[in-house]
């Protein structure tokens, strides 16, 4: 038995090691190839010669604007729907089950489908054209199912006794939600938010058709703006000799995702701590 146990342990270690190795390889490849390109100038200049030279400043700005547009839409809609699903409806009703099924299907739909939808609906039907707004709204559609499902799972994990205790203390539903349930679920909400932000920043297919290809500084969210992922794709697949700048941009994208992740989890921990200390 000890033999089996030990070999099982070894296999588990090897599996975990392989995953780390693959990840380490990927990151170190991007860091090694991209680091020489990275400089203050690269971050602050406009791209020239189809992006082979110059920087990526307008592209970083566009990426952040697209992400922000998506978040402004996704946060209220996503949290609202999750709260409805978890707290304001009976878990086994047909409506809830259908909604869940639809969300799960949506979470698995390939991004190019969202891209074509965004192109037809936001760019065409709503006449928003190629714009950061169209891109952000398309991303919002992609992010919604992920955020709703993780938030709902977080709320469902709150012990039922807490709700009863809250009701016994005469807390209103809103107070209970705001003071107890949401803080308790905030790690799950953050995780969902980070997952969806990750999906959004990695998005190329959906954005090339909606927020577009223009690499100049956007004047407003009605302008077309190129996202970092689109820029990386174009440089590595379409521009002859664009590989170095492509690696540089990829490194910036990874750093951006790391920074967003760190700040989001810090914020959520901070919020949770504040709520708990108030409860004491």
């Amino acid at each position: 038995m000890a033999m089996i146990d030990r070999s099982f342990t070894i296999i588990i270690w090897i599996m975990a090691g392989l995953v780390l190795l693959a990840f380490g390889w990927l990151v170190s490849d991007v860091v090694v190839q991209g680091a020489p390109k990275l400089s203050w100038q690269f971050l602050m200049d406009e791209p020239t010669r189809s992006g082979r030279e110059g920087g990526i400043y307008p592209i970083i700005v566009s990426t952040l604007l697209i992400l922000m547009t998506a978040l402004v839409v996704v946060l209220p809609l996503g949290l609202g729907s999750a709260i409805w699903l978890a707290e304001f409806s009976s878990k086994s009703s047909k409506r809830v089950r259908t909604t869940r099924l639809i969300l799960d299907v949506l979470a698995g739909v390939p991004s190019i489908v969202f891209g074509l939808f965004g192109y037809a609906f936001f760019c065409g039907f709503l006449d928003l054209g190629f714009s950061i707004l169209s891109g952000g709204l398309t991303l919002a559609c992609m992010m919604l199912p992920i955020l709703i499902r993780t938030t709902e799972a977080g709320l469902a994990a709150v012990p039922q006794d807490w709700r009863k205790a809250g009701a016994a203390l005469g807390m209103s539903r809103t107070t209970l939600l705001w003071q107890v349930l949401l803080p308790y679920a905030s790690p799950a909400i953050t995780a969902g938010l980070l997952l969806s932000i990750g999906r959004a920043t990695a998005e190329t297919a959906a954005l090339i058709f909606t927020s577009g290809y223009v690499d100049r500084m956007p004047e407003s969210i009605n302008d077309s703006g190129r996202a970092l992922a689109v820029h990386i794709y174009d440089l590595s697949m379409n521009v002859v000799g664009g590989d170095k700048a492509s690696y540089g941009s990829a490194l910036v994208l990874i750093l951006m995702v790391v920074i967003i992740n760190l700040s989001a989890s810090t914020l959520s921990e901070f919020w949770l701590e504040k709520k708990i200390s108030r409860l004491k």
Binding site: R49, S50, G51, F130, I208, F209, G212, Y213, V214, D215, R216, D223, S224, D234, N238, V239
Partner: peptide
């Protein structure tokens, strides 16, 4: 597209106020 984008940038420089958006696909 990458060629047209560079042409557009040069054109914009000599024609202030003009904006040329190049999209691909």
């Amino acid at each position: 597209a990458p060629l047209a984008l560079e042409m557009a940038k040069r054109f914009e420089k000599s024609h202030p106020g003009v904006r040329i958006d190049v999209q691909t696909g």
